[in-house]
Design a binder for these strands. Structure first.
Lengths: 157, 157
DNA sequence: TGACTATTACTGCCTGTGCAAATACTGTAA
DNA sequence: TTACAGTATTTGCACAGGCAGTAATAGTCA
């Protein structure tokens, strides 16, 4: 056995249970903390904490569709339809049925939507950097890597 | 400067943006991955991925109230009222107005609810352990510690 | 006692998500 | 050409959370 990295499968047992040590509880609290901060940061622009994501992807081009956005953002097409409804209602994007494939709806940003995409990243960076204060670059890289490992473990199981 | 741990405040800048490197995106995806697995694990018992939490806290005693549950679970009393509505509708808990403080509602588990609390932790442990497979105990401890640091940074900022 | 503050539970409104079904359309194989 | 499998979008239903406001109650202090 490698003495430097002992692998085990027993982090939790069915006997004892504590919210403070639960990885699910900690992750959920972390996300809601970040979301609340992002919400505050976005409020002046009339956006919620998650509405920026579709805008940013559309602004990068490549003709994303509702379905591709749903795949990229790890959600479902029903949720994405309604998200786009809200963004369209705010006048940030326009929907136009494609003429080459009449199933898909082309998504384009309005001038107002495009302007937001130039302002959003700065605010988002501020929120993330603030919450990562005290982290070293190594720790930051480790954290991202560990999260990716948890995500990919969904397939292993 | 300590050469072993160089602190910086610049993990993200407003110039470039990538979902794959975004700590918000990674955390959200991790949570939804875990939730989806928990949802599957709980389905046979008629519970969703989050409904077990109030049940477990009530089962530990100490006369928790809707308000204290909301505080412990990092949500608000409105959401908790509706959560308890659903659990009561499923016959898992009972609500009784306290006679000593008529503002509060005493929460007690039904027999069915109490039985679930004996089964839940095992399934939850299974989900968590599976998704942490490949982790060392050190990495597990580091991950929890880093999440706690992000959460506590909400106050620093 | 009476005014005031804090707390508890609840409700309405909005945002957001997941799942399943329906509809429309595309491309392919028989 | 026709049947069929796959894809894109939308909708209904249920669950869940945040925020603001309300009514009832408790405790405190002048």
């Amino acid at each position: 056995m490698n003495p430097e990295k002992q692998i085990t499968n027993e982090f939790y047992s069915g006997d004892r249970w504590s919210a403070e040590e639960s990885i699910g509880y900690l992750l959920r609290t972390t996300v809601s903390t970040l979301m609340r901060a992002a919400e505050t940061e976005m409020r002046p622009y009339g956006l919620t904490a998650v509405q920026w994501a579709p805008l940013m992807i559309i602004s990068r081009g490549g003709n994303p569709t509702a379905a591709s956005l749903a795949r990229d953002l790890n959600t479902d097409t029903g949720a994405m339809t309604r998200m786009l409804d809200r963004l369209e209602a705010k006048g940030l994007l326009a929907r136009n049925r494609s003429s080459t494939d009449r199933r898909v709806v082309m998504l384009t940003l309005t001038d107002q939507g495009r302007e937001l995409t130039t302002l959003i990243p700065h605010h988002l960076a501020r929120v993330y950097n603030n919450h990562l204060s005290g982290f070293s670059q190594d720790e930051f890289a480790q954290l991202k890597q560990m999260l990716r490992r948890i995500i990919s473990n969904r397939d292993v199981v």
